[in-house]
Design a protein around this nucleic acid. Structure first.
Lengths: 348, 348
DNA sequence: TTGAAAGCGTTACCAC
DNA sequence: GTGGTAACGCTTTCAA
């Protein structure tokens, strides 16, 4: 007696089975299943009925293997961390753009590990995704190049790549931080600290560069003791902020180079009840940032726009665009919510 | 002159090509590519070299078509909204569990639309995903059933399903809300309002049921005018909260049935400067909720544990488990952060 | 309009 | 060990 259901062992019906039962040719079944015109309603009906009877399920993997365009209607999305709100928003934007074209999204996280990224790029291309949208760690150029040469178009997002002919969508990180630093200086701040992510991450470097530029343009001093780079995750930032604020001459303003770092820094500020006394500006927006008191001022990016643009560039390539690489640079927007507008405390 | 690269038109090398160049049989190439033992080092070397020379890329779609187990090493994840932090955390947990087994995740969002969900389930099974993890809208039981019968194991998450033989991972929503309501009553609250999501969503119903039960167990009155259901999204909740607080006899405590609703409600409270005067408890945690002042007390779920458990159940099925459906019910945890601990204001 | 047959790139089987 | 060959489920071509 066979098991009642969920019987993985039982081979499900194929087109040939349907053809046999319906008493028609295999090609006719294919035509009906794909909704192609030019099949007599009578036959179509018989095919549909037979398919239903047998519980036929179309096999898209076999289909795309044989199809002329070889499209899998699948797209690979390589993120830093799918759980990060920035990544999640980006993912959703890409998914929506893809859904409009009947394309599904394979998403995966690298956690900034080049080894993991290389593996992902390799399996994605082996699965014959139609295209790739990648937030590159920066150490995988040869793999990205290989994908391109193999015929899988790639769009890099959030960070550029040295691989030629690859479209990119980035944000003007420098300009964003520069403007924020100037605003802080206008508020009277002389001792501004910077807390940044791992220097291996391109955006972390750019944001730091923006910080340095911003200070320089106003002829201000860069205090090396007020710079903490190489911080990854909220806890690291929390600790670093504690150290900075315990200095004999602590900073009066803090600039954070990443959303998780901002969270950690703010946590320290509230621990020390300094959230109204030390200014804070973070890069990248956070949900609920506007409801904190004072609100967290941020240099906001638009992950939805980034994702939408990346998908547009990719689909454009899939539609045959052969031109040189296009590099979209999106602007940031400063959201003044209070924490960045705190003046330099004069009281010791 | 052919275009320099990214030439999608140029057919990439196949195993047969590699075999020809290496001067070996097709089967040997397959063995080398799959790392099977029993190939002379010399031949293996020749194959590897030829593959490199031709820029050969293994085609996993063709591979899984021919393979005995027919596995695609792909798993479908149907979420409500990939951008929601709960979904994002769940997604990441599933991704990690899948990655341990060399499985990739196809993720998509339904936005609570049964039509969209049906479409997704259909394409996912057509793509022959090895299994499905679904947050069901609740109107797609026949489609889920079809997937199971077709041999694609399904695990429902966050919400149950009426389909037999489907494993589920849910949370004890009722108990969570019940306990929160009791705590509010212990704090002296007599007028407690409930704001809930669309009644079509199972969790929304359960949480409301928990609210009703909690009130009843203490012999308290359920004020119909203090119940607002069918709210979807932060804006709707924000508006509903405004209305509730404008009542002649406003509530002294608010219970929110969903994370986005909690955000909207809290926004209204801060608009009206009532965040210290009207208690608030939300279902599901929010990033930064602990940094608001007062902190937002929540009935927290553990999306990572839910995702991990769902993946475990699914892979168990893929490993051949044939037993009856298993229904895991995870507990919630109340996180007291302040907003739920505000006493009932005595001043009018 | 319909169907037979070839073939997509791979793995499995069986002789050598 | 190795290689020829059939077959996975489907689309496409071509002749009827």
């Amino acid at each position: 007696m066979p098991s009642p259901q969920n019987d993985t062992g039982r081979r499900s019906a194929t087109m040939r089975d349907v053809a046999t039962v319906a008493g028609v040719g295999l090609a006719t079944v294919s035509r009906v299943v794909n909704g192609k015109p030019g099949v007599t309603p009578d036959l179509a009906e018989r095919v549909t009925r037979a398919a239903e009877l047998l519980g036929y399920r179309h096999d898209l993997t076999a289909s795309s293997l044989r199809r002329a365009d070889r499209r899998t209607h699948t797209l690979g999305l390589v993120l830093e961390d799918a759980a990060n709100p920035f990544s999640a928003a980006l993912h959703r934007a890409v998914e929506d753009a893809a859904a409009d074209r009947g394309v599904l999204v394979l998403a995966a996280s690298t956690d900034e590990d080049p080894v993991r990224e290389r593996g992902l790029l390799k399996t994605f291309t082996a699965r014959r995704v139609d295209g790739l949208i990648v937030v590159p760690t920066g150490q995988t150029d040869t793999e990205i190049d290989a994908a391109c040469r193999g015929g899988t178009p790639v769009v890099c997002v959030d960070r550029p790549t040295t691989v030629p002919h690859v479209d990119t969508v980035t944000v003007d990180n420098r300009a964003g931080v520069r403007a924020a630093v100037k605003a802080l200086q206008a508020g009277g701040h002389l001792r501004i600290a910077f807390l940044g992510d791992l220097p291996a991450i391109w955006t972390a470097e750019e944001r730091y560069a923006g910080f340095v530029e911003g200070l320089a343009e106003e002829g201000c001093i860069l205090h090396p003791s007020l710079v903490r780079r190489g911080l990854h995750g909220a806890e690291a930032a929390q600790e670093a902020a504690r150290e900075l604020l315990a200095l004999p001459e602590p900073p009066t303003a803090l600039v954070s180079g990443q959303n998780l770092l901002t969270v950690g820094i703010r946590r320290t500020l509230q621990e020390l009840r300094l959230q109204y006394h030390v200014a804070l500006v973070g890069f990248d927006d956070l949900p609920l940032a506007d409801l904190l008191e004072p609100g967290v001022s941020v240099i906001a990016q638009d992950p939805v726009a980034i994702g939408r643009e990346a998908a547009a560039l990719l689909f454009d390539r899939l539609d045959g665009e052969r031109g040189p690489a296009r590099h979209r640079v999106l602007a940031t927007r400063y959201l003044a919510r209070g924490s960045g507008e705190l003046g330099a405390a004069v009281d010791s």
